[in-house]
Computed example of a mutant assay.
Amino acid sequence: MKKNVMVIGYGNDLLSDDGIGQRIADEVASWHLPSVKSVCVHQLTPDLAESLARTDLAIFVDACLPVDNFDVQVQSLSPACDIDSNLHIGNPRSLLALTAAIYGSCPSAWWVRVPGVNFEFGDRISQTAEIGCAIALVKIVQLLDKVNNLWIENRAIV
């Protein structure tokens, strides 16, 4: 039985690399996978909780500043211990906690963070972000294959 998956790409697409999450969610949507819903938002807000409650797996995708290297980071998420008091700038963990608090359950979740170097006003992403997007899409395919046994064949990933 296939699980319902929700890919949530978030960030400001008018701030260059900050739009990485939305760009990746758009690409996933273009694959037209029947059990995968792809959502693009500027920020994580409480109205996403209802959809998350009906989802088996959530994949959050966002830009980040490079830490020690320029690797795409993929980490498992669990609900935060407490809910942010400032939900209009929520993070995935607090959104999962809100979903669990309101609906009694929340999906298993992963956070895909793609390094970016240019967060200035603009609609083009840097070469660093382009490479990160390609790597992130491969990692998302791996997560989908692992969870749903979805075999994505003959698809252009980039």
Rank of each mutant, 00 (worst) to 15 (best):
K2Q: 10
V5M: 05
V5D: 06
M6C: 13
Y10A: 01
Y10L: 00
G11I: 13
S16H: 03
D18L: 10
G19L: 04
I20K: 04
Q22Y: 00
D26H: 08
E27F: 09
E27R: 15
V28W: 11
A29T: 07
H32Y: 12
H32E: 14
H32T: 11
S35L: 00
V36Y: 14
H42C: 08
Q43A: 12
T45P: 00
A49I: 09
E50Y: 10
I59K: 04
I59L: 08
V61C: 01
D62C: 01
D62A: 10
D62W: 11
D62S: 11
L65K: 14
V67W: 08
N69G: 06
F70H: 08
F70K: 00
V72A: 05
Q73M: 12
L77E: 14
P79H: 05
A80R: 08
C81V: 06
I83N: 03
D84A: 13
S85E: 14
N86M: 06
G90L: 08
S94K: 01
L95N: 02
L96R: 03
T99C: 15
Y103A: 01
G104C: 09
S105F: 00
S105W: 01
S105T: 10
S108P: 00
S108T: 13
S108D: 12
S108A: 13
W110K: 08
V112E: 06
R113A: 10
V117F: 05
N118A: 02
F119L: 07
F119Y: 10
E120P: 00
F121N: 08
I125K: 00
S126Q: 04
Q127T: 12
T128Q: 14
A129I: 11
I135N: 10
V138E: 15
V141I: 14
Q142Y: 05
D145C: 10
N148T: 13
N148E: 13
E153G: 12
R155Q: 15
A156M: 01
A156Y: 12
V158F: 06
